[in-house]
Write a protein that binds this DNA or RNA. Structure first.
Length: 895
RNA sequence: AGGGAGUUAGCUCAGUUGGUAGAGCGCCACCCUUACAAGGUGGACGUCGCAGGUUCGAAUCCUGUACUCCCUACCA
């Protein structure tokens, strides 16, 4: 038998343990198996990214599920992957090249994309290796990248198929535009920042009347693109001007004065300039009133030829110049401070401009209908359930999705424009002739697809769809739909909803059964983790310092139904301590099994009932309890309940009591009794370690290797449940629970008196247990040595109360049993502390008695309350009264 | 503005059918008791946001209200 180090050192074991798992192939799932399938697809992190705490939380939950199911006899498959993350990756590589003074456009598309591939090949495995540090038990053979050939084929097939049924179309629309990146970006990539700016009031002369209309705007430079002025139709101040025209200062364009209820009479001046090509609201008005759309910006967000003399200026400079000129020409009225929220590009930091451009769109309404239905019907369940409403609310207000991006990194749109007829030919393979005019002059669209397009297909594209090879077919048959999708609530719309739609459309089935939504990881004060705040924490650093198991456990033990997770290193340290506790408890057991004869039946070996100590029966009862708690909690995704139940079993039952109770048996008892306890101890530890494994896999695997009774490896050994463990758990005993509770109460009472009277643990006490009931006397004398050992006693008498003169007294009542712990204090302490202690107890009892008496003398309570509750209260009242009497008596003995 | 969530100990949070409020951390005191000082034992600390209502009884159910957070859309 090996011995293990006296302090748990995660660094020493984690790498080795992980390599052993991987070498043995325990993470691999079978395409075909007699075992029931259980599958999870990992939300793919950015291929060039680092593992952050959000991933760590997300992965810990998934790994817990996978390991639990794997141990529970399932063909558990966890499919890892990485995302090409269009904008993010392109930006990173672009920045790197800039350091070498190389610009993207200098390289050209092909060479630049080659550079990104180089980057991907160099750093693409970094995050996988970080995942290994966390203990992720993914089936690495199935690892997929979003630009892999198979996934690309799926993307093309889906695009073409949706285009053919008119669900994908091309259109001129206003989109969020990032100037530095020269691309449209999704709403997800826009950060709204509350900014202090100004509201500028500007006069527009009304043609022919000599009147001036004062408009209020935060963006004076956009007046160069104005094509109307709008007022509220009910606004008496301006009613007479509706239908007339006004002149835009600086560029002298004649524009209509129109009426629209969108205009708020109370806000600003009640007059709004309309710039349909540069504002989302104005765009809508422009559409309804059929206004002209004048674009005044270039793709780099500089002023274009429509801006006249302002051409070439950046937006902010144009604003300055426009204001100067307005002042010079007398059109400027005033400026007022104004707070507004401005969209910024999350990648470049630049202000996002609404920009009119040709883009590809996906019609969402038809796709949304079946996707709503599967959630409404409960085929897909959100956990926590409240996200269902959020999801449906969004689906009911869904808008078409701009799927094209003006980037180079990503899935290029499979559409070819004809130079002759300008129409598009959309196909999975490069077409040779235009399908409209048979011209051969075709040019592929320059744009790539939004990253979320390929993500939407992820649950089935990773399983080989649409390839029809046997492997692909079997994989899909076995593992689709998956069981869980685990992710944060920030991407429900961008990802979860779209996967559901695509699953329905192309697989005619949901992509997953349960969507488990966890909160986002924040710092200990609840702030977002960000570089600028300097509060971000690297999970790898946490693993280096405290071990992966401690990090994982700290997540699982504090994961409360979808709430944001406030991370604190202190808490990780707490669970590091717990890991050490597990380690040392195991060490204790192993050191006491040196002479243990391993039964040939191994884990099936059962103790001979006759020789089981009451403590053995008791710990098995507690084990049965925790097995049930853990199972119920995991089945209901109450991960923190499971973690907490295990924590308490290990620390408060196994370590605090069972180990202490067994010490005397190990040291002095008869060989037969010792052997039985050894067997129970080995069996309980074995189960405890297996129960803990999905939560903290490394330490448990390492301990498991050293156990005398064990299977092949903890990771694939059976997960204990009250069902599959029933033979062993049959040794649990209710009587033993009652008996041990009694012993624990007595010991606690003695410790309590010791503590409050500050009697040193070094002082061995002489005590008396006042008991009149025969059966209670019997139980206590049975357990005399245990009590004496643990409570550190010199002598212990059991019998009548005797002389309680100058004694500390603690009454105990368990069920029908009554006893008193009586400790003579003469010569040990100053009595004042004990008098205070007793007085405090009496006060508490008086309060209780008053309360209970009040309740029980209330006729309505007696009439209406549950009989059990009444009976219980009656017993409590009687007990409290008895205890009060004996304590009052004890108190008089000090005078 | 619309939608969602929350308010319980100093901090982070449990509290499943209403029946005298719990855990971990932190704090205080005492202890190196032969697995563990990353430990042990004991202790202090709560008007359950506020106000009503239902009930014999409310942290829990109902109504109102204050505050906080998140999401979506944002007023030119």
């Amino acid at each position: 038998m090996k011995t293990i180090a006296d302090r748990y050192n995660p660094q020493e074991v984690e790498t080795k343990v992980y390599q052993d798992w991987e070498k043995a192939g325990y993470f691999k799932a079978e395409d075909q198996s007699k075992k029931p399938p259980f599958s999870i697809i990992l939300p793919p992190p950015n291929v060039t990214g680092f593992l952050h705490l959000g991933h760590a939380l997300d992965h810990t939950i998934q790994d817990l599920l996978i390991r639990w199911k794997r141990m529970s006899g399932f063909n558990a498959m966890w499919l890892p992957g990485t995302d090409h993350a269009g904008i993010a990756t392109q930006t990173v590589v672009e920045k790197e090249l800039k350091k070498q003074k190389i610009l993207r456009h200098d390289l050209g598309r092909e060479k630049f994309v080659d550079e990104i591939w180089k980057w991907k090949n160099e750093y693409g495995n970094r995050i996988y290796n970080q995942m290994r540090r966390l203990g992720d038990s993914c089936d690495w053979n199935r690892a997929t990248f979003t630009l892999d050939e198979g996934v690309s084929a799926a993307v093309k097939k889906v695009f073409v198929s949706l285009y053919k049924k008119d669900s994908i179309y091309r259109g001129l629309r206003l989109v969020n535009w990032s100037g530095p990146l020269e691309t449209a970006i999704s709403d997800l990539e826009v950060d709204h920042v509350v900014t202090k700016g100004f509201m500028y009031h500007i006069n527009y002369p009304v043609d022919g009347t000599g009147e001036l209309l004062t408009v209020a705007t935060t963006r004076p430079e956009t007046m160069l693109g104005d094509t109307a002025i709008a007022v509220n139709p009910e606004d008496d101040r301006y009613k007479h001007l509706i239908g007339k025209t006004a002149t835009v200062p600086l560029i002298n364009r004649k524009i209509k004065i129109i009426a629209d209820t969108y205009v708020d009479k109370e806000f600003g001046s009640g007059v709004v300039k309309i710039t349909p090509a540069h504002d989302f609201n104005d765009y809508k008005i422009g559409k309804t009133h059929k206004l002209e759309f004048i674009n005044i910006l270039t793709r780099k967000c500089e002023m274009n030829e429509n801006a006249g003399v302002y051409q070439g200026l950046k937006v902010v400079d144009a604003r300055k110049k426009v204001l100067e000129d307005l002042k010079a020409l007398g059109f400027f009225v005033k400026e007022e401070p104004h707070t507004m929220s401005i969209g910024h590009c999350s990648r470049s930091g630049a202000v996002v401009e609404p920009f009119l451009s040709e883009q590809w769109f996906m019609k969402m309404e038809d796709l949304a209908t079946p996707a709503k239905r599967v959630v409404e019907s409960g085929t897909i369940r959100f956990e926590p359930e409240s996200w269902t409403k959020v999801y449906l609310h969004w689906m009911n207000h869904i808008e078409d999705w701009c799927i094209s991006r003006q980037l180079w990194w990503g899935h290029r749109i499979p559409a070819w424009q004809c130079e002759a007829c300008e129409k598009f030919t959309v196909a999975e393979t490069t077409p040779t002739v235009c399908e409209h005019c048979n011209s051969t002059k075709l040019k592929q669209d320059e744009d790539v697809l939004d990253t979320w397009f390929s993500s939407a297909l992820w649950p089935f594209s990773t399983m080989g769809w649409p390839n029809e090879s046997p492997h692909s077919v079997e994989t899909q048959k076995t593992f689709y739909p998956t069981n869980y999708l685990v992710t944060g609530h920030d991407i429900i719309f961008f990802w979860v909803a779209r996967m559901i739609m695509m699953g329905q459309e192309f697989k005619k089935d949901v992509p997953f059964r349960t969507v488990y939504i966890h909160g986002l990881v924040r710092d200990s004060q609840g702030r977002k983790m960000s570089k600028s705040l300097g509060n971000s924490i690297d999970p790898i650093e946490m693993i280096d310092k405290h071990g992966a198991d401690a990090l994982r456990f700290s997540f699982l033990a504090h994961l409360f139904s979808g709430k944001d997770f406030k991370f604190s290193e202190q808490r990780v340290e707490g669970y590091r301590n717990f890991m050490n506790k597990v380690w040392n408890a195991s060490r204790f057991v192993l050191s006491n099994l040196q002479d243990f004869k391993v039964p040939v039946e191994g884990v099936k070996a059962l103790p001979a009932r006759a020789h089981l100590s009451v403590f053995d029966h008791w710990i098995i009862a507690k084990l049965a309890e925790v097995e049930k708690q853990v199972h119920d909690a995991l089945e209901n995704e109450r991960f923190s309940d499971a973690a907490t139940a295990l924590y308490q079993f290990v620390w408060n039952q196994f370590c605090d009591w069972y180990i202490e109770f067994t010490k005397p048996i190990m040291n002095s008892a008869a060989a037969e009794e010792k052997q039985t306890t050894q067997l129970v101890m080995a069996q309980v530890l074995n189960r405890m370690i297996r129960l803990l494994h999905p939560f903290c896999p490394f330490i448990t695997e390492e301990i498991y290797t050293n156990l005398p009774i064990k299977g092949q490896a903890c990771i694939i050994d059976q997960y204990p449940t009250v069902l599959n463990d029933k033979d062993f758990l049959a040794f649990a005993s209710k009587d033993a629970e009652l008996e041990v509770d009694m012993v624990k109460e007595v010991i606690t009472a003695i410790r309590n008196i010791r503590g409050e009277n500050r009697i040193s643990p070094a002082v061995k006490l002489n005590i008396r247990l006042g008991v009149t009931q025969d059966d209670v006397q019997k139980i206590l004398s049975h357990n005399k040595s245990a009590i004496m050992n643990i409570a550190r006693l010199e002598n212990m008498e059991i019998g009548a109360d005797g002389d309680m003169n100058k004694c500390a007294v603690a009454p105990i009542a368990i069920g029908e049993s009554r006893m008193k712990v009586i400790i003579p204090l003469e010569g040990l302490v100053d009595f004042n502390e004990e008098i205070k202690r007793i007085q405090k107890t009496i006060e508490k009892l008086e309060k209780d008695v008053g309360l209970l008496h009040g309740k029980l003398s209330n006729e309505k309570f007696v009439q209406n309350a549950d009989p059990d509750v009444i009976a219980n209260d009656r017993i409590l009242l009687q007990q409290s009264k008895e205890q009060m009497v004996s304590l009052k008596d004890a108190l008089t003995r000090f005078q």
